[in-house]
């Protein structure tokens, strides 16, 4: 909309030259034409499904009908019922996603820093390191999570070493724990953290770091007052790209967790839809998940002052 207006406005400023107006209108039409494929795609694959989801979340069971038979309705109680029953899984999802995001940031920021700042000028080294960062994408998400299951298994070396170091008690284990789920989430979304942080550190002018040192800031203070603030856009996009998919993830929790204390909302939605055939509850939970994420993201972006990203 704004694009078309911008394209048309120059002609409005001119004193009504007919040919100019025609040209402007043609340019306006070109703009609309260029937007059309994207617009159609969004309507078909985003707007329609979201509306369908909203509608489904308000369906009512067919009176006396079979399991999985519903009628269009405006049954708002679906939301109260879904939240009343599944609020622990919903909260746990956000909690796990938060932990995984923090873990990915703590691990990913230094990696991005080394690639973008320390390896600057060594193009080959930078290239190799970046390929290593994205290398996990060459294998499927599920395979990698299954591999993690092996790594964290009771008889694998990680648990053995941790027991030996007395970090874990002798009967302690990692599989089927919250730790395993969060670690799996952090691992799976790590590249989504590293790449945006790398992109913003890559643009960082090292003379800024030197200027910090020149103005009496030690290495840590320079990091806190100069480097980190200047890489904030990357940190914000990285945390969003990690947090949002992690909150809705169900692969890590189902493969690395246990059925009682690590269930995430994605698993609930999955089983409501495909096993219990309770479509309205699944849809209501999906809507809640979307709305809460949208609210959290907006608040977060406002706080960090990086509105330009949205």
């Amino acid at each position: 909309m704004s694009l078309t207006m911008a394209l048309v406005s120059p002609a409005q400023g001119a004193d009504g030259g007919a040919s100019e107006e025609v040209a402007a209108r043609r340019r306006g039409r070109t703009g609309v034409g260029l937007l059309l494929p994207g617009a159609i795609y969004l309507v078909a694959f985003f707007a329609v499904p979201v509306l369908a989801l909203l509608a489904t979340s308000l369906y009512a069971p067919v009176p006396g009908g079979d399991v999985g038979q519903y009628l269009p309705a405006l049954r708002w109680e679906n939301y109260a019922a879904a939240l009343g029953k599944f609020w622990p899984e919903l909260l746990r999802s956000f909690w796990f996603a938060l932990l995984a995001t923090v873990a990915a940031l703590v691990v990913g920021y230094p990696v991005a820093y080394v690639i973008a700042v320390r390896a600057r000028g060594h193009r080959l080294l930078q290239g190799v390191l970046l390929v290593l960062v994205v290398a996990p994408f060459f294998t499927s998400f599920i395979l990698r999570t299954i591999a993690w299951k092996q790594v964290l298994a009771d008889d694998a070396f990680v648990v053995a070493s941790l027991r030996w170091l007395h970090v874990l008690p002798d009967d302690g284990r990692l599989t089927a724990t919250a730790f395993a789920v969060v670690a799996g989430l952090a691992y799976n979304f790590l590249p989504f953290m590293i790449l945006p942080v790398y992109a913003s550190l890559e643009r960082l002018d090292v003379r800024m770091i030197e200027a910090g040192g020149d103005l009496y800031a030690g290495p840590f203070t320079t990091f806190r007052t100069v480097t980190l603030p200047l890489s904030m856009p990357g940190v914000v996009s990285g945390t969003l790209l990690t947090f949002i998919p992690a909150a809705g993830d169900y692969v890590s929790a189902s493969l690395l967790g246990n059925p009682t204390t690590t269930t995430m909302i994605g698993q609930v939605i999955d089983s409501r839809f495909f096993r219990v055939l309770d479509y309205p509850t699944a849809a209501a939970l999906s809507v809640v998940l979307m709305v809460v994420i949208a609210l959290l993201v907006t608040a977060y972006v406002r706080r960090t002052g990086t509105e330009d990203l949205l």
Binding site: R207, G213, D214, Y216
Partner: peptide, 16 residues
């Protein structure tokens, strides 16, 4: 650098 009592006006200014 941060412990030296000197300050620099950089060729490129390097303002934050």
């Amino acid at each position: 650098a941060h412990r030296r009592p000197v300050n620099t006006v950089f060729q490129s200014y390097a303002l934050f």
